[in-house]
Amino acid sequence: MNYAIETDRLTKTYGKNRGINELELKVEAGDFFGFIGPNGAGKSTTIRTLLGLISPTSGSAKVLGYDIVTEKEKILQNIGYLPSEINFYRGMKVKDIIKYSADLRKTDCSKKAGVLSERLGLDLNKKVDELSLGNRKKVGIVCAVQHSPKLLILDEPTSGLDPLMQREFFNILNEENKNGATIFFSSHILSEVQNYCKSAAFIKDGKIIIADKVEQLEETGAKKVTVKTESGTEEYLYKGDIKELLKDLSGKKPLDVTITEPSLEEIFMNYYE
């Protein structure tokens, strides 16, 4: 199997604080992968370790087949990255930032940068200091995508983008994915993952608790059960023998019962509760 990202017991601790703990993550080349977890679960630590911004405490990882410690530059040559909180050099114009990013990659991507800026409605002559978070994100998207990288790593990319722009952004990602790029993005907005991703992984307390194809995750066999009794309404996910469930429900003397397929969000919540 050809993996774009492959970690082996990857661990990062900050003194006594946990970052990620023996993380095992595999992302197939060409995948559109959602990395889901609540705040503080270790999503950004994973991404920052994969990018070489921070060194792993133990374990190892490969990105596009290159080691994250010894072959950092080769990895960075082939990726595009959009951080969750993006900041640029004060006083610079949008077009200068985009050009600076291309120059650092020693490539001329002015044509694609122009097209992307137009699609995102970006004013190239504005100073970056004057931009809102959403517009800063757009500059980040252009910088991350303009050189057509093999792997796009995006950390909570849609925060700050209005719904129209979010749609355009995912259109861009889909096009890149169709052209062969692997997309890896972290999010806590499950509908995004459900709508766009082929695969996903849930991270909790620095460990991957489940990773699979999105359709497999949705088909967990679990049912969302809502029972209305005289004492109130109870809602829970049930996984197991359906006869046992019905027996259990009849014992509760229900006034009303609904059994439905859970959404990814409900599956996700079940993992974290």
Binding site: G52, K72, P83, N87, R105
Partner: peptide, 14 residues
């Protein structure tokens, strides 16, 4: 300090 390190260091420069 100005949080631009993430931008710079994720470009292919050692």
């Amino acid at each position: 300090k100005e949080r631009t390190a993430e931008f710079l260091m994720t470009h292919p420069v050692s």
